[in-house]
């Protein structure tokens, strides 16, 4: 048990070191930091002095270790574009992204699970066929096209909802929330639908196939034979077991969602981390790119590790492996 957990921890640390190395290489070799920071027309001596002050003339390995140390202390460098610490920029944008992702996840679960169950109970029925075809269209619809159409219909033509920004915000101890004002909530509707649709199809298909699997198992057939009420069999006995993998996948998807929020945030000019990142790609603002890579890498590794370790606790079969 301890061996498995420590193995997982070791792997996670290894991956984080690798990701940090990539970020370091970007930071150090993409564009010349000295050229970016020095004043115009500086002499070679001034450049050398700055180079030495930044520690850029040390051996690579030492530079990497120093970079790693700075990252551990939360120092992610200074943005070329905003001349602000990158860590501060990311923290300011974090609430916007997290609120969007949270609402989108709740929406996709609330819709995806019932739809998946409907498709599983009557796989050849008229309703499930329509839902199945709709998911194929949903998969083929890029996130930005969904967003664009929603803007066209609800913001341009009907003028019901705003097409960009977060609306009025309330400051709760440093956390800028849009949940407490009408305009904040209205601004949230279109982006969160766009992001939720991306995940909805996946959850729906997963619930459907898991549910079909569970329904054909012996204990469900036995429950029918005992004459238990259908609602009890479907709702309590089958759905619960079918939801296990859904919980895992949703957990793993949150990392994916934060990355996919990049597209949604750009379409709706939602001032979160994703928009910061797309703007950094075009500028190009290398410290922000490297920091975002580190952030997403850290998130993925943490979620994966927690899910893996939780699984070894929950499922005894995995421990023998």
């Amino acid at each position: 048990m301890i061996k498995i957990v420590s193995m997982r921890l070791f792997q996670a640390i290894l991956v984080m070191v690798a990701v940090t190395a990539v970020a370091f290489i970007m930071f150090r070799f993409v564009g010349d930091p000295v050229a970016m920071m020095v004043r115009e027309g500086a002499s070679q001596a001034e450049k050398d002095a700055l180079r030495a002050a930044l520690g850029l003339d040390n051996p690579m390995l030492i530079q990497f270790v120093e970079f790693f140390g700075r990252v551990l202390h939360g120092d992610l460098g200074t943005s070329f574009r905003y001349q602000q610490p990158v860590a501060e920029l990311l923290m300011n944008r974090l609430p916007a992204t997290l609120e969007l992702v949270l609402v989108a996840t709740v929406m996709s679960l609330a819709l995806g699970i019932p739809l998946g169950v409907v498709c599983a109970l009557k796989p050849t029925g008229f309703l499930s066929r329509i839902i199945q075809s709709a998911t194929l269209v949903g998969i083929s619809m890029p996130t930005f096209v969904t967003g664009l159409l929603l803007i066209l219909i609800f913001a341009v033509n009907l003028r019901w909802l705003p097409s960009s920004g977060r609306g009025e915000l309330v400051n709760l101890g440093g956390w800028q929330t849009g949940f407490l004002t009408v305009s904040g909530l209205k601004s949230l509707i279109l982006p969160s639908i766009t992001l939720a649709l991306f995940q909805l199809t996946l959850i729906m298909r997963l619930v459907r196939s898991e549910m079909i699997d569970v329904l054909s198992s012996d204990y469900i057939r036995f429950a029918f034979a005992r004459g238990l009420p259908r609602s009890h069999i479907y709702g309590r006995l089958a759905l619960r077991n079918a939801l296990m993998p859904v919980v895992t996948v949703t957990g793993l998807q949150i990392g994916q969602l934060i990355a996919f929020a990049i597209v949604t945030e750009t379409v709706f000019q939602w001032p979160g981390m994703g928009l910061l990142f797309t703007n950094a790609v075009g500028y190009p603002d290398v410290p922000v790119l490297a920091a975002y890579l580190l952030f997403v890498g850290f998130l993925f590794v943490m979620i994966n590790m927690v899910v893996d370790i939780l699984y070894t606790f929950i499922d005894p079969r995995l421990r023998t492996k």
Binding site: M26, V30, T278, A280, L289, L293, F300
Partner: peptide
């Protein structure tokens, strides 16, 4: 394993940003 844990869009955007800087 490490590569697939990053979404393709994110990796491709990073590469595009690096290309632009270089």
């Amino acid at each position: 394993d490490v590569l697939v844990s990053f979404p393709t869009i994110l990796v491709a955007l990073l590469i595009s940003g690096v290309a632009r800087a270089q």
